[in-house]
């Protein structure tokens, strides 16, 4: 039941990464970590304190960090790189493409401060194109967890998976609503509430926004099936197609450009299988700006009300 989904505290997804990295390091001695001068921002200090010899500060040199990570994986290590999402993708796209993706190296690219909710630092740092860039790379797994617990679980899970992964998370404190013991399965969508009128597919911080939107819709008598797509690639095609077979319309929600994002992946899947109306809640071909996270989400069309409106529009197009 959607009304029963609540949160007790707020914590940042990047803190979930820090906790997960420490745990992954404890479970597997081959796990190593690298950071490009952002230890505090990425919450990597817990891992470093426990495993100082398995950590490499590379300085402000992200391209070199990606190459070193690829090299470490050749020797059998499982490297986790840490920097902002902006510097984890666009700045080093060719290094990732050649040395990690094409070479199929077991590197975990861990990216914080993704999206508008980075806030005051503004558009230079608010990357909204990273999901698109990374999902286009053959063999790359792309994960955007939604809260502290899911980010921690995802961090632990990717250490056990062999292959390149892009793990995207964020800066602000955010509601923690996924149970601590919820199993994280790469590529398997998580249904948060079942419904019959409309499917909402959400990823990252937009999952909580979608929970709030679904509650409003529910009170208006609209039955929402809310599905958390934490793994954007490989996409859980079956979960999406099965849900839309029931509801006949969909909304997607992500903190990313419309171009190249989750919504496009879902629209493409639907149009190739069972075409149905879909509304995409995402940033519409625009850069962000400085501001508070909530202000930015509202201004750029990612507010709770935007999801509600998108749902009603999709319903009207059935």
């Amino acid at each position: 039941m959607i009304q029963e989904i609540t949160f007790t505290e707020k914590k940042a997804t990047r803190d979930g990464f820090g906790a997960g990295l420490l745990e992954a390091g404890k479970r597997n001695p081959e796990v190593v970590a690298l950071c490009a001068d952002l230890i505090g921002s990425l919450k990597m200090q817990h891992f470093i304190k426990e495993f100082p010899d398995r950590f490499f500060q590379v300085g402000i040199a992200e391209a070199n960090m990606m190459g070193i990570a690829a090299g470490l994986s050749i020797g059998g290590k499982i490297p986790f790189t840490g920097t902002f999402a902006n510097f984890s993708t666009g700045r080093v796209y060719d290094q990732i493409r050649q040395s990690i993706a094409y070479s199929h190296k077991n590197v975990k690219i861990c990216a914080s401060h993704a999206g508008l909710t980075l806030g005051e630092d503004g558009a230079t740092h608010q990357i909204l194109e990273d999901i698109g860039m990374m999902k286009m790379l053959p063999g790359m797994t792309v994960i955007n967890p939604c809260d502290y617990n899911q980010t921690k679980a995802a961090t632990i899970a990717i250490a056990d998976y062999s292959g390149p992964v892009y793990l995207r998370f964020g800066r602000p404190s955010w509601p923690v609503f996924i149970p601590e013991d919820q199993k994280f399965e790469i590529g398997k969508a998580l249904t948060l509430s079942e419904g019959t009128d409309i499917s909402i597919f959400a990823t990252g911080h937009m999952v909580w926004q979608s929970v709030e939107a679904a509650k409003i819709l529910d009170k208006e008598g609209i039955s929402v099936e809310l599905i958390n797509i934490h793994t954007i690639k490989p996409l859980d095609n079956n979960a999406i197609l099965n849900s839309v077979a029931k509801t006949k319309c969909a909304v997607s929600a992500e903190e990313h450009q419309v171009n190249g994002g989750l919504g496009e992946s879902i629209a493409s899947l639907l149009s190739r299988n069972t075409p149905a109306p879909i509304e995409i809640v995402a940033v519409n071909d625009s850069f962000g700006e400085s501001g508070k996270p909530a202000q930015l989400l509202d201004k750029y069309g990612l507010g709770v009300n935007d999801i509600v409106a998108a749902a009603k529009k999709a319903l009207s197009r059935k």
Binding site: G67, L72, G75
Partner: peptide, 25 residues
């Protein structure tokens, strides 16, 4: 072959990573 190369400038970084891996082992 242990890594793709051709897009220039990346090989020393990769070799350093494998050198660190050997050092750890």
């Amino acid at each position: 072959i242990r890594i793709a190369s051709g897009s220039l400038g990346q090989g020393i970084s990769v070799a350093l990573g494998t050198a660190l891996s050997k050092r750890l082992d």
